[in-house]
Amino acid sequence: MRLLKLALAGACAFGVLGLAPARSAEPVKIRMSWVAPLANWASVVLEKKDLMKHLGKSYTLDTIRYQGTPQMIAAIANNELEVASLAYSSLAIAIDNAGLDDLRVIADEFQEGKPGYYTDTYWVRKDSGINKVEDLKGKVIGTNGGGSAVDVAVRAMLKKHGLEDKRDYTLLEGPLPAMPAMLLEKKADLVPSVLPFAFNPKLRADGKVLFTISDAIGPIDMIVLAARQSFIDKHRAAMVDYLEDLLTVVRWYIDPKNHDEVAKIASKITKAPPERFGWLYTNKDNYRDPNLLPDLDALQKNFDTTQELGFIKRKVDAKKHADLSLVMEAAKRLK
């Protein structure tokens, strides 16, 4: 018994001694999420470590892959993820349903429906006889999972044209890469297609675009970076350093003069030939803001759509749940 007590006391002392100095000296650990390779900045940012001058000094960066943005919610709630790349719908769901009221939008990833840039599309078969949204009555709609960004948008579009889930159409779930096949094998009559799957040659030959995601819900702030207020307050200086490095890397990626090297990196990550990435981070891609600033007005409208469809109950205020002071401070340093 005495031995046990001694051991316990020893363990406590060790714990205290071990932790105390670690707090002040160690860089802040930041974990950042991604879902789709190339589309999310976290999937490529560490390829340009050489441009990140604060990395390993004031902060360390772990990039973690998730199956989808909804999965990040439990991770944020359990403090397993500091910077989440959330779709507008998942952000609203995290704030309202999961009660993560201290989540703040700290920067942008990409937007849809910006004039002059690529926008995600919804496809039907050419020979299907479907020419307008109303023709989808009684049809099967492919989706990648309830509450995702493209899912919310297609539901909104159908609702706008008087079609209700279950009563007028059936939703069929599948992963995004399988969507073209689901359409062409007639398992579904309408499927969403995002980059790079929208370049599928068979889809382009036998399918046609019925509408775009911005026809459905206007301009969209598709993916934003979000962190908890408590974390921002505790590690503000490190977060600004991190955003400064992220800005540097993003600007390098979207700079047309680096395009050949970007295509090479893309090829290395996806194991596909570099010629296939002519579109990447150009105006044939989704819009990516060089200052990482989100479009809060669009985000507010997207939140409202998510609410109208019943995915969240209360109104979520986009401006209240944004803290852009960090990314602006970081941008100022780079001038």
Partner: peptide, 9 residues
């Protein structure tokens, strides 16, 4: 699973 994605505990 669907409910978990909507954070609907």
């Amino acid at each position: 699973m669907q409910a978990a994605h909507f954070a609907n505990s």
